[in-house]
Design a protein around this nucleic acid. Structure first.
Length: 485
RNA sequence: GGCGGCGUACCCAAGUGGCAAGGGAGAGGUCUGCAAAACCUUUAUGCAGCGGUUCAAAUCCGCUCGCCGCCUCCA
């Protein structure tokens, strides 16, 4: 298995520090507002990485934190005139609400910064003792000059950074690049007691403290959005390695951005969509599928058009599932041999898993993996066209379903029934019909068809289509589905 | 200014040395009472451009053009 490591700038063979054990720390969110789809991407990417590693048999411990104390939270609390911790709690709840809908599983450990203040203070003390940090007027700063490897993750050297430094002027700092480990609290701000007086932690120190506590000094994978690379992750490395004297994370994994009109989607540009906004018009599975249809390190251009395409693609998946089920449900004759068509199709079935695994093994290439899945979809459709009948052929179809479900579970998509998919689409598209009404129309129409009243039959078909329901006549039944347009 | 990335069909998107996956859209066809779905055919002798290395290049090297990101809070 290969993973692209930001630290080395190369795709590397994945070798855990301890056999069979993988520890992952992914930076979560600062809980001061609703999540946008960029947060969704990051959460989904690491959710899939974690699921895949488990699928490959690793014993995975996944930690994802919440930053629940920070300038933005305090600002929001002041604006709304409510306590800061109420803000944090509210948006933590909303985070879960969104992520649950997107099929993002809870991490094994989900620490909150404010629950680790003592651990952070310990590290800051240690860093001062070791000469990596200094205190001035109740603030403690990390001295980047004292840490030799500073810049190794983001590939920049100190001189360049100094030249282009746009950091806030702070006369307390010895070096403009130094960053705060502990901030003295201002009047009216939340604070914790510390050896340096009343204050609160700097942003970066929480991840060092929480990863150390739950994963140890060194662990396998550390990740987050590409925008955390600098300064956040660079600073984490400096703090953690200065404190422990050991290498921090072995593999650094960063997901790419979502773009709108080719520009990075961001809060400050205001060009963002919240998860719930998008889910007002699209099924959560559509968004999840869309985000996995591009490799995690590439930028994804977000648009309505793209989501509609993703919706059509998913519909193709579920339509095929229905076709498979229709054949499986039918009576079939005992048969010891594949039909000719079955023989050809069996090659695809038997080689599929290997293709899926090799795609995912190559730096979690979900886009390629999905390509393989849709290749199987195409092949199973071809096979179904050739009217498989014997028990041996049916076995192949059952195996196909099993494979789709197994690989779908890794990506956490494709695991509903076609009926559930269509019911969800009905709601989202505001179709003014109940399932009972549709069934009754279908019955009316089939009565008309019995009497060869094609005019009436076509009228009913048309009437339903105008309301967004498509009918598919099969040999012994009529299926309905929501029209995708 | 420093560092990094990207440019593959009408659109999206895999592919990092050996005949260019997959999806969407379009056109034609098979099937169907009519449809829908599905399938078949068709849509890149070509991978931003120009050179180079190689038996062999979308893939490696150089230059040019275009776009984007990080260097400040950001997933």
């Amino acid at each position: 298995m290969k993973i692209y490591n930001t630290l080395t700038g190369k795709k590397e063979e994945f070798i855990p520090l301890m056999p069979n054990k993988v520890r992952i720390y992914a930076c979560g969110v600062t809980v001061y507002d609703y999540c946008h789809i960029g947060h969704a991407r990051s959460a989904i990417v690491f959710d899939v990485i974690r699921r895949y590693l488990k699928y490959r048999g690793y014993d995975v411990t996944y930690v994802r934190n919440f930053t629940d104390i920070d300038d933005k939270i305090i600002k929001r609390a002041n604006e709304e005139d409510i306590p800061w911790n109420v803000v944090a709690q509210k948006y933590t709840d909303e985070y879960y609400a969104d992520m649950d809908r997107l099929g993002v599983a809870r991490a094994d450990i989900e620490p909150k910064a404010t629950e680790y203040i003592n651990e952070m203070i310990e590290i800051v003390k240690g860093l001062i003792d070791k000469g990596f940090a200094y205190e001035i007027n109740g603030n403690v700063y990390f001295s980047v000059e004292r840490f030799k490897g500073y810049g190794k993750l983001s590939k920049r050297d100190m001189e360049d950074m100094m030249a282009g430094a746009r950091v806030e002027v702070d006369e307390n700092k010895r070096n403009p690049m130094d960053f705060a480990l502990w901030k003295k609290s201002k009047e009216g701000e939340p604070f914790w007691e510390s050896p340096w007086g009343k204050g609160r932690p700097g942003w970066h120190i929480e991840c060092s403290a929480m990863s150390l506590k739950h994963l140890g000094e060194s662990f396998e994978i550390h990740g987050g959005g590409a925008d955390l690379l600098f300064p956040h992750h660079e600073n984490e490395i400096a703090q953690s390695e200065a404190y422990t004297g050991k290498p921090f994370a072995k593999y650094w994994v960063h997901n790419g951005f979502i773009t709108i009109n080719k520009e990075k989607m961001s809060k400050s540009l205001g060009n963002f969509f919240t998860i719930r906004e998008v889910l007002n018009t699209f099924d959560p599975e559509v968004l999840r599928f869309f985000l996995l249809s591009t490799h995690y390190r590439s930028p994804i251009e977000f648009s309505d058009e793209q989501l509609k395409e993703a919706e059509s693609t998913l519909d193709r998946f579920y339509t095929t599932l229905t076709r498979i089920d229709d054949v499986i449900e039918r009576q079939y004759a005992e048969n010891k041999e594949f039909s000719k068509a079955g023989n050809e199709f069996s090659d695809f079935v038997f080689s599929f898993k290997e293709k899926f695994v090799s795609a995912m093994d190559d730096d979690f290439n979900t886009a390629l993996a999905l390509g393989h899945i849709f290749e199987l979809i195409k092949e199973v459709n071809r096979f179904l066209d050739k009217k498989p009948a014997g028990s041996k052929d049916i076995e192949l179809l059952l195996m196909t379903k099993q494979l789709l479900s197994e690989t779908g579970n890794v990506l956490n998509i494709f695991n509903r029934t076609a009926h559930e998919w269509n019911v969800s689409l009905m709601k989202l598209k505001g179709i003014a019909l109940t399932e009972e009404e549709i069934e009754s129309k279908i019955k009316q129409r089939n009565d008309a068809r019995q009497g060869k009243d094609w005019k009436l039959a076509d009228l009913i078909r048309k009437e339903l289509e105008e309301k967004g329901i498509i009918l598919e006549d099969k040999k012994d039944r009529t299926n309905w589905k929501v029209k995708i347009c």
